[in-house]
């Protein structure tokens, strides 16, 4: 019996990277979107770095675009 440990390792690394990166990007995008909401949960003095609405929107757009690109690549893998 032969076990292809190299492919198994590759599967592990790639899926860890893909899964974690998608969720991290999506979360970052939501942080960006949050900057568009005027009232912060902890108020202006909660110590969190403040993001201007414009910068927040830009962060959100970049992050969500990256997520969409990864999803499209996933669809490409399913179909071909």
């Amino acid at each position: 019996m032969k076990i292809d440990w190299a492919s198994l390792g590759l599967v592990s690394v790639v899926s860890i990277a893909a899964g974690v990166v998608v969720v991290a990007l999506f979360s970052l995008g939501l942080i960006g979107l949050s900057a568009r909401v005027p009232e912060r949960v902890g108020g202006p003095d909660d110590g969190a770095p403040t993001l201007s609405p414009a910068a927040g929107t830009a962060v959100a757009v970049v992050c969500f675009a990256a997520v969409v690109a990864i999803v499209l690549y996933g669809l490409y893998i399913i179909a071909f």
Partner: peptide
């Protein structure tokens, strides 16, 4: 993977706007 991703999702968005998240 889900454990790490969940932990990250909660940590990164903990200060973000609740409704948006």
């Amino acid at each position: 993977i889900a454990l790490v991703a969940t932990y990250l999702a909660y940590r990164t968005t903990s200060r973000a706007d609740d409704g948006t998240v």
